[in-house]
Amino acid sequence: MTDTPIPPAPPSRLRRAWESDLFWSFRHAPVAMASSFVVIVLILGAVLAPLIAPHDPFSPGTLNLMNGFTPPGQANAMTGDIFLLGTDDQGRDVFSTILYGMRISLFVGFSAVLLAMVLGVTLGLLAGYVGGWTETIIMRIADVQLTFPAILVAMLIFGIAKGITPPEYRDEMAIWVLILAIGLSDWVQFARVVRGATLVEKNKEYIQAARLIGRTPFSIMLRHILPNVLNPVLVIATISLALAIIAEATLSFLGVGAPPTKPSLGTLIRIGQEFMFSGEWWILIFPAVTLLALALSINLLGDWLRDALNPRLR
C-alpha cells in the first residue's frame, strides 16, 4: 500500500473557481460586473458607515439644529458648515443618514431572506421528498398565502406582533418584527422551487443508490438532495433580497416599519417626501436614488445568475 503513487494535488479552490464556467460567464457580462460593483460599493458603505460617515446622525450631541435644510454642497448660511448631500430638517447630514439607513435596510433584507430561505428550503425539501399528506399540507398553505399580496401578509404579521409587544419595547423590537414579517411572507417561492427540484432529483438513480445503502431520509435530504437544489435557491435568494429591501422600504414608508429613531432608507424617504414640494428636494431624492440603485443592481445580478446557472441557455 505504501508504494502507491501520491496523486497530484488537485487545483486549489480559488483557481477552480476562477476557471469555472460561472466565473467565465461573469467576466463576459458587463451588466453583471457593473451591478456587482455598485452592490459591493453600497454594501461596503453600509458596513463601514461608522468609519466613513462624516457625522453621526443619531447622536444628539453632534447635531446642530441651525444646520437644518442646508442644500447639498453649499455652506450653511449661519454656521458655514458644508454637507455633501445637504441636511434634513433637524440638521442631520443626508449622506450619513443614507449610510446608516442602508445598514438597517440591508440587515433587514439579508436576515429576512435568510429566514425565508431556511424556512422555504426545509419545507420544500420535506414536501418534495416525503410527499403524501406532508406535501399536501405544506403546499396548500403556500397556495393560500400566495393568494394574498406579500406586503399585506407582512403588514398583518407586523400588526399582530406590534399588538402583543409591550409599548416600551416597540422601537427595539421593530427591526426584528420587520424581519419576521418579510421573511414569513417570502418563504413560499423557496418552498415551491425546492420542492420541484427535489421531485426531479428524488427520482434519479443516485438517490436510489443512497437508499439502498441504508441512508436515512434525513441524511439523503441533507447530504444528497440539498446540494443539488441549491442553484435555483441562490437565484431566488438574490432576487428576493431586492424584493425584501423594497418591502422593508415600503413598510417603513407606510410608517409601520423602522422607527424614525433608527431610520432605514424607507423611513428616510417617508421623512423626505414631506419636504419635496417645499423645495428641499435632496432630503427625498438621495435616499430614493440609493434605494433604486441598490434594488436594481441586485435584481440585475439575480437575472444574470439565473441565465448563467441555466444549462439550457449556456
Binding site: 434519479k204 438513480e205 443516485y206 436510489q208 443508490a209 443512497a210 439502498l212 441504508g214 444528497h224 446540494p227 443539488n228
Partner: peptide, 17 residues
Amino acid sequence: RSEIQMIFQDPFASLNP
C-alpha cells in the same frame, strides 16, 4: 442488505454530481 448491491442503468444519474 450489505450482501446485495445494485448497479443502475444511467451512469449520468447514478452518481451525485
